[in-house]
């Protein structure tokens, strides 16, 4: 790919005791593209996400993030440091703050883009804190409207339907103005209609210049939206390429689509 890469994985390996969950996985994610990671259950997709977002630390390999001139290594960074660099993520089994309202959940997304500390909360007359909270509120409102969850703003996140929760989690991740978005099975459990809306939304985000790394099971979602597809099986990369090329790849058909065809 000629485009400039934003995320660069080199020979990333993660072991749990004797089990190798990822073995020497390498690929690049170009800026402004949607890249999907596919593979059967247990292929190591979520482990890969956890390594990128700092939840897990890979034993070997490099993960670089950022454009060439200002590239940082992510290995060894804490999740909050990685979030600060501009990577936001969602979780396979949605992790919203259930006790808090939808609005509050989305506001927590703006945490990395704001700075007010303890003293700003105690000392009410600083302009910075005031402007900041207006900015955050505004941002949350716009995101809620865009994702059509503004009517739910004051509901506790727990009380929402599955599809609504997915949208809140997406809004929360976007509230941090990320450079790159990691989505872990965002279409799981959605209705056909919701799924179509999600695909349109992802395309719109790409139009705006956001880079997206997507884990997805559903080929009907992956193939139309992805610019590039990486296939994992048993922790190793077995293929990568454009959606069309990957679909024709014999090993992929055997490992993944072959299983699905059963």
């Amino acid at each position: 790919m000629p485009d400039e890469s934003l995320l660069d994985l080199k020979a990333v390996t993660k072991r749990f005791g004797g089990v190798t969950a990822l073995s020497s996985v390498s690929f690049e994610v170009s800026k402004g593209k949607i890249v999907s990671v596919i593979g059967p259950n247990g292929a190591g997709k979520t482990t890969l996400f956890n390594c990128i977002s700092g939840v897990l630390r890979p034993e070997e390999g490099q993960i670089g993030f950022g454009l060439k001139k200002t590239r940082d290594s992510l290995v060894g960074c804490a999740p909050h440091e990685i979030a600060r660099m501009g990577i936001a993520r969602t979780f396979q089994n949605i992790r919203l703050f259930g006790q808090q309202t939808v609005l509050e959940n989305i506001l927590t997304g703006t945490y990395v883009r704001t700075e007010a500390g303890l003293l700003d909360a105690v000392w009410p007359w600083t302009r910075r804190a005031h402007q900041e909270s207006h900015w955050a509120m505004d941002k949350a409102m716009r995101l809620m409207e865009r994702l059509e969850i503004d009517a739910l703003a004051d509901r506790p996140a727990k009380a929402l339907s599955y599809g609504q929760q997915r949208r809140v989690e997406l809004a929360r991740a976007l509230a941090s103005d990320p450079e790159m978005l990691l989505l872990d099975e965002p279409a799981a459990g959605l209705t056909v209609h919701e799924r179509q809306a999600l695909m349109d939304f992802l395309r719109a985000l790409r139009q705006e210049g956001l880079t997206i790394l997507l884990i997805e099971h559903d080929m009907k979602v992956v193939m139309p939206v992805s610019d590039w597809v990486v296939v994992l099986d048993h922790g190793a990369k077995i293929a990568e390429g454009t959606p069309d090329a990957v679909q024709r790849h014999p090993q992929v058909i055997e490992a993944y689509l072959g299983v699905a065809a059963l």
Partner: peptide, 25 residues
Amino acid sequence: RLRRSRIGLAWAAMKEDELAAGCLG
């Protein structure tokens, strides 16, 4: 005031799910 501040919101988030809070920076 603290409870409704940026820090207070972060405390509440952390209280519920430390991992998710970490991934939010």
